[in-house]
Amino acid sequence: MALSEVDRLIQLLARLPGLGPRSARRAVLHLIKRREALLDPLARAMADVAVSIRTCSTCGNIDTVDPCAICRDEKRDRSVICVVEDVADLWAIERTSSYPGQYHVLGGTLSALDGVGPEDLRIDRLVGRTSAAEVSEVILATNATVEGQTTAHYISDRLAGTGVTVSRLAHGVPVGGELDYLDDGTLTAALKSRRRLGATE
């Protein structure tokens, strides 16, 4: 028996992260009940995004325009590039509104076993970008995992000859964190990268 459109919608929604068949049914029911306020705008928004979404050819961010809005923005500092693993990480940093520079999305990390090599990540393109005269610093904001750090070290080697400053994010006690609840790995990292009190930058 052919599935009705509603069933098909439920099945598709159930494949989203965080949703199962039961919650997808609830969501669909809710959408149908609020057709004008939710269902129609959602359908239009999804159709628009499906047509216009693309990956920025410069930084790897996703946006409806290429180059993306961040790369186009004249007000942003073009001398700093922040390297992140994934678009989600880029969004996380953007939410802080404390970073005025450009980004570079790698699209993953070097894997120890699965054969994700440098050629699978956008590392060559990053090296190409840093060779532009205006770039003076690359901030490596890969995750604080073994793979993330291995990737960061690899990139820092690749950039060794280019003359740009390579820095990485600090690792340590989270803001609002209590030492007693920290795992010993974080504490070790925090102790190693302690800094002088009262020192500016």
Partner: peptide, 23 residues
């Protein structure tokens, strides 16, 4: 967790590579 072995080698690319390789 009994012991976090890699956090102290964060900034040491060679030893991190050794740890990664043995695993």
């Amino acid at each position: 967790l009994v012991q976090n072995r890699w956090a102290q080698w964060f900034d040491d690319p060679e030893r991190l590579a050794g740890l990664d390789a043995i695993c």
